[in-house]
Design a protein around this nucleic acid. Structure first.
Lengths: 341, 341
DNA sequence: CTGAAAGCGCTAACAT
DNA sequence: ATGTTAGCGCTTTCAG
C-alpha cells in the first residue's frame, strides 16, 4: 500500500474552503480567519494526515529552511562535536541540515557548493579546504550566506567562527617551556593552505620568543598526509635525539607520536613530554594521560549556525565579522607537570 | 551584488531554443537533438553559469535525489564511521544527504521522519530509538523506502543492515572464559528497547553456557543513562569483589569502567580483565591497550546507502532482508592474553 | 473574512 | 528535431 500524496487541495475540499484559506492557516496567518474555519481546516489536516510539500513551498517562497554544512574530514571527533552544535541549533531554530564532506579536496568542495546552491539551501557552513580562494571570494561577492568555521580565509568580508590557534599553541608550548623543557619540537602537516597549522606554528614560535629562546631553537617536524607517519617520526627523533618535548597539532598525529616514542622505548614524560590538540574523551585514559588543548567545538557549531541563520533572518544585515573562541589547556601528566586533580 | 537567479528560460532565450530542448539536453536526453543545438545550449549554460533549480525539478519529477539519515547519537565515533560510509556512497551514486539526530528521543524521531517526508527525501536510513514500533510499522506498510541500521526492529518486512551482536558478545566473553576468567561481569545500559544490548547480553550468556557455566554465574551490571556511572560501577565492584573480568558493551562505559578500576587501585588485567565494544583509533593507546570488538561501521553505512538506493532504482523491488555483518575480536593486553603482534 | 487565478522553475505528453 | 502546453503543490496578489 503506497501512501497517497495528500495536497493542500485535498484539505481545502474536505474543509469546504479554498486552498488560500488552508495556506493561511498553515502559516499561522490567523489575522484573516475565523476561529470556526480554523477549526474545520485543522480537523481536515489531522484527519488526512496532511503534510505540506516543502519543495513546492520552497519553490514559491524562495526559502527552504535548509542549511548545508560541508566538513573536510569525518574521522576527527572534533567534527562530531561541531556537528552536534550545528544540529541542535538548527533544530531549535526550525532548520534542517544537509551534510557533505569535501575530504580536503578542492574539486569536491566546489562541486558540493554547486549542489547546495541547486538545492536552494538558504546558506552554508563550511570548513574550507582553503584551496579555492576564488570560489570563496565569488560567493562572498554574491552575498551568498556563508559562515566559515575553524579555518580562516583571506577575505575581509567573510563571516567566521574560529578558535584562537595562535593562543592555543602558545599556551601549550609556553607550558612546556615553563616546566623546563628546552628542546620542544612541533609536529604539523605540511600544508601551506590551512590557516590553523600556520597559526599553531606561529603560537609555537611566539612562546619560544617570549621565553628567551631564539629562532635557532625551533624544531619543526613537517608531516605529509597519507604517509606512514610513525616511521617518519621515529627517523626524525633519531636525527634529533635531544628533543625533550613534542607539541602535536593534530589528534591523529599525536597517536602516531605516542606509538613512535613507545617503539623507541623512550619514557613519557621523563624523556619526552607531550602536549596535543585536541581534547577528547579518551585523552585522560591514554598511556600516559594526555595534556591537551581543548577547543570548544560544540560552541563553534552553535555560533556558526546562529550567525548563519541571523544572516538571512535579521532585517539589518550584521557586519562581516569573525568570532574568536578561546582554547583551554588541560594539564595531565604527559607533559611532566603534576596534574591538578 | 546579489546573484541573479538564472532559469531554464534564460538559457532557452540565449540559445534561441525552447525550454524543452534545454531540459532534454540537461538530462542527457540527446536522442532528439542535433550536435549543433546541443553545442549552442551548452555554451549558453556555461556563459550564464546556469544551475537547475532542484526544487522545481523535484516538484515535477517527484524525486529529489536526496536521502535522509537519522542517527540517535553523535558522540560515539562509531557513528562517524557509519556516516562516512553513507556519505561516500551517496556521492558516488549522485545523491545528497540530509542528517538529523533523534538523541534516542522517540518524539524527536517521529518529528524528524515527518520533516524528511515533507522535504520529499527519496528514502531514509535510520538507527531507530526502537521506541516507536507503530511508526516503523506504518512506514513499512506504506512502502516508505527505509533501511534500518545497527538495531533490529520487530517487523519482518524491514530492510536492515546490522552487525551480529550475539556473535560479537560471544567471541568477547568466550575469549575471557577460555583464558581462565571465572567471574565475568557484563556492563550494559538498562534499556529494554534496544536490540543491540539484548543481543549482546544473549551472546554473553551463550558463551557462559558453551563453557560449562550456568545461569547462576551471570553477573549483570545494569547502568542507567545520564547517571554518574563511575560511582555506580565502583559500588558494584565492591559488592562483587570476586569479579575478575568485565565485558563492556559500550565505548563510553568502558572509559568509566577503566576509571573506576583505577580509582580502586586494581590492576588491569591482573585483577580485572576487560573486553569492550567498539574498536576505535584510541583503543591501542589506552592504558592498558584495550581488547575490543571491531564493528565494520563504514561497510554498514555503505551497504545501507546502497540498499536504500536500490530500493527506488531497481525495477524489481528487492525482497525485505537484513544484511548481517561480522564483528571481529581485536586482542590486546587488557584481557590478559598475550597480544598477537 | 474568503476565494480565484497567476506563477515559482521544471518536465513530459502531445503536437508539428 | 524541436516547440507548445499543461501541470507538480504551494503562496500571494487582487477582487469580492
Amino acid at each position: 500500500m503506497i501512501a497517497l500524496k495528500v495536497t493542500i487541495g485535498d484539505v481545502a475540499k474536505k474543509a469546504n474552503v479554498s486552498k488560500t484559506t488552508v495556506s493561511r492557516i498553515l502559516n499561522e496567518n490567523y489575522a484573516h480567519t475565523t476561529a470556526e474555519t480554523r477549526e474545520k481546516v485543522l480537523m481536515a489536516i489531522k484527519e488526512l494526515e496532511y503534510r505540506p510539500n516543502a519543495l513546492a513551498k520552497g519553490l514559491k517562497s524562495m526559502r527552504t529552511n535548509v542549511i548545508g554544512i560541508m566538513l573536510s574530514n569525518l574521522k576527527n571527533p572534533f567534527w562530531s562535536t561541531v556537528l552536534e552544535g550545528v544540529e541542535d541549533t538548527c533544530r531549535e531554530l526550525g532548520y534542517n541540515l544537509m551534510i557533505c564532506n569535501s575530504n580536503e579536496n578542492p574539486e569536491m568542495e566546489e562541486e558540493f557548493i554547486k549542489e547546495f546552491q541547486m538545492r536552494q539551501v538558504d546558506g552554508v557552513i563550511i570548513n574550507p579546504t582553503c584551496k579555492n580562494p576564488d570560489l570563496y571570494d565569488k560567493l562572498i561577492d554574491q552575498n551568498y550566506p556563508m559562515v566559515i568555521v575553524n579555518r580562516r580565509i583571506q577575505n575581509e568580508n567573510a563571516y567566521g567562527v574560529v578558535v584562537d590557534n595562535v593562543k592555543g599553541a602558545y599556551i601549550a608550548v609556553n607550558h612546556l617551556l615553563k616546566y623546563g623543557r628546552k628542546r620542544v619540537a612541533v609536529s604539523l602537516f605540511k600544508n601551506p593552505f590551512v590557516s590553523t597549522w600556520k597559526e599553531r606554528l606561529e603560537g609555537y614560535k611566539k612562546a619560544f620568543l617570549a621565553n628567551g629562546f631564539t629562532e635557532a631553537d625551533y624544531i619543526i617536524m613537517e608531516l605529509e598526509e597519507g604517509k606512514d607517519q610513525k616511521e617518519y617520526i621515529k627517523r626524525f627523533l633519531r636525527k634529533h635525539p635531544d628533543i625533550d618535548a613534542i607539541f602535536s597539532t593534530n589528534t591523529m598525529v599525536t597517536l602516531e607520536v605516542i606509538g613512535a616514542i613507545k617503539d623507541m622505548n623512550l619514557k613519557i614524560p621523563e624523556q619526552i613530554a607531550i602536549v596535543s590538540y585536541d581534547e577528547t574523551i579518551w585523552s585522560k585514559y591514554l598511556d600516559p594521560p594526555l595534556t591537551t588543548i581543548r577547543q570548544p567545538g560544540y560552541q563553534m557549531g552553535q555560533r556558526a549556525a546562529q550567525s548563519l541563520i541571523d544572516l538571512f533572518q535579521s532585517k539589518s544585515k550584521p557586519l562581516p565579522a569573525t568570532v574568536v573562541l578561546e582554547p583551554e589547556l588541560i594539564v595531565r601528566i604527559s607533559c611532566g607537570a603534576i596534574p591538578k586533580t
